[in-house]
Amino acid sequence: METLTETNDKVTYTIELLICLIMFSVFVTLPLYSTKYIMGLITISLISSICAMSYNLLLGYAGLLSFGHIVGWGVGAYTVGILAGKGITVNFFLIIGVTIFVTIIISAVFAFLALRTQGIYFALITLALAELCHAVTLKWSRFTGGENGLTGIDRPWLVGDKAFYYLVLISFIISFLLIRSIISSWFGKTLVGIRENDFRMGMLGYNTWIFKYLAYIISAIFASIAGLLSCFYIGIASPADFNFVTSGSFLLMVLIGGRATLIGPIIGSFFVVFATHYLSAYTNEWMLILGVIFVLVVMFARKGIGGYLLVWKNKIQQELHKQ
């Protein structure tokens, strides 16, 4: 996992930059050579990556297991659903603004309630609070469309798939850069310290509560942007956007991809999205397979793909240095 020390030397840094540039060009030119189907999957993967990266901020970097991350996603989806779906406004930026505003308020309240506890208590309370939101969307039908949710939502500016793909790509890049700067800032380092020994951080003089509180809210904001994009993409906001089993898929992305690494959740997202789609096309047992992978990763491969890549990278660096 990434810790606090700069482990990249100049060579590695250049290589990483090169890889980023290559990936960037691949993604930017994608619509030119990709099928619609693949582009769609990649769109979903990029959206999920935003949600997974911010989930990782909480789980991987701050060490807080929360089952309530889905709340941010759901708020994003339903804000779009209510504002755009009910014809209140289609101004994209206004919708984003409202989404972020509502997310901050709700996550501020939830974080306040949940952070009065820690560990398992915390995880379970976040689960219960997420379920509260789920119940609200189911029962408050007049407002939220009940079980069927809200439908008929158009893309912003009524753009087609290709243009929407670029919208998602831009959002992804912005989110990536923002989260990266958070992680490499003092705030991020403090979160790592809290993850490693919350008690001692308090004894060193840190107000650990405020750090956790802000981390919760910040990660919720990114999740809400992801949910917002998702709702625009598929045109529906439904109670499944608050379902804790849905939140499980984001958890899986972080776990498989690698906790406490920056690119881990991205890898995990692509893996889970593609695996789910192809698996469910070929077999009915895809849930079983995902569940087994989940369990195996937790038991035996806790570092995740990203974690192993990091170890591998460090080993290579050490070898090169020896020469």
């Binding site: 606090l4 020390t5 700069e6 482990t7 700067s181 958070i182 490499s184 800032s185 003092w186 705030f187 380092k189 403090t190 310290g193 951080m201 060193l204 003089g205 840190y206 107000n207 405020i210 750090f211 802000l214």
Partner: peptide, 19 residues
């Protein structure tokens, strides 16, 4: 050591402990 010596305030400035 770094965690103990840091300013302990909320800050978003970039930081990486140099080797």
């Amino acid at each position: 050591l770094m965690l103990a010596m840091a300013p302990k305030k909320l800050g978003f400035k970039s930081f990486k402990l140099a080797k």
